[in-house]
């Protein structure tokens, strides 16, 4: 089985992709997508009630991936669980064989399909990373020893395109201090700016997976620009999409281009293709065919 940690440590260009759990208990579509991605990627990220829309548990779906022979990245947000539930779920993931975890703040409930819900946020993402580190050391959040701890590979997210950047940078460094070892970034469209971020981040002992978000259409690109913080799809890409006959195909081509670019300097890439997981395979294939992969710049 491919493993995220092994791949990153061995300095191979590492590719992960996001898989979204189903809105219910029918896992057939989810598993189909997983089987499609198997062998193509190093690990798959399972989202945790993304956009505050209630879905099948990220823990359960991570286990399903594991059974399929895919290394899962168990995403956990701070929105839905207090510190007791957070710790027991993380230990639960560990005993089930899950080895990677991605700590996120989580979208506010006001975006989702349960707007009348109570948002928890007992911990924030830095404190969540810190908590996982403590579990890794065999202690609980209150520094009380556990009967067996975890040894999870801890990830977090960073938004190199955040405006203003400085507060985001301070938080990024706090996540590193708290124990995050790999970072998944928000979708990148400004490669030059991202490269600058990467150069700055080299000083830390972390691995970075650059975020690639598949643009399915010009409409989606416009939507992202107005609705998703920190994402700024440049005009020329929108025009490129608009002028093509098959916009999805064009989107795949753009993503493949970005993947190739990342391959030339970054540790890896994280592909987000919301609902279009089958396109991930095409993006990877296309990136290979554009020209032979360069040596990764670890």
């Amino acid at each position: 089985m491919n493993s995220l940690k092994q791949s990153l440590i061995s300095k191979r260009f590492t590719i992960t992709a996001e898989i979204c759990p189903p809105k219910g208990t029918d896992t057939s579509g989810f598993l189909d997508k997983a089987r499609l991605l198997k062998g193509q990627i190093d690990a798959a990220n399972v989202t945790d009630n993304q956009r505050a829309v209630m879905r099948l548990s990220s823990l359960a779906c991570s286990l399903l991936l594991l059974r399929e022979g895919i290394d899962p990245v168990f995403q956990m947000t701070c929105r839905d669980r207090n510190r007791l539930a957070i710790q027991s779920d993380i230990m639960g993931a560990w005993v089930l064989g899950i080895r990677n975890i991605l700590a996120l703040t989580g979208d506010h409930v006001s975006f989702g399909d349960h707007r009348n819900a109570k948002a928890v946020f007992d911990l924030d993402s830095v404190q969540l990373v810190q908590t996982i580190s403590k579990l890794n050391e065999g202690n609980n959040i209150n520094d009380k020893p556990l009967k067996g701890g975890t040894d999870l590979f801890i990830g977090a997210v960073v938004a190199p395109g955040a405006e203003p950047w400085e507060p985001e940078m301070i938080k990024f460094e706090k996540k590193i201090e708290a124990g995050a070892r790999f970072f998944q970034t928000q979708a990148i469209y400004d490669m030059e700016r991202f490269q600058k971020f990467f150069e700055y981040a080299r000083q830390f002992d972390i691995k970075i997976l650059g975020g690639i978000l598949l643009l399915k259409s010009a409409k989606m690109a416009n939507f992202l620009n107005t609705n998703v913080p920190g994402v700024d799809v440049p005009k020329r890409l929108i025009e490129e999409l608009e002028s093509s006959k098959d916009q999805l195909e064009k989107g795949i081509e753009i993503a493949a281009r970005q993947l190739k670019e990342l391959n030339s300097f970054c540790h890896g890439a994280h592909i987000m293709a919301i609902g279009q997981e089958e396109s991930v395979v095409r993006i990877i294939e296309k990136a290979k065919s554009v020209s032979s992969a360069k040596t990764p710049g670890n």
Partner: peptide, 27 residues
Amino acid sequence: PKGLLNGPCGGVINGRCEVNIENNCVW
């Protein structure tokens, strides 16, 4: 809106809060 204690979430839009864009991100 999330009561975070260690800095902004990923929802800052040009210094404003994604939960209510009329407000500055408090962080």
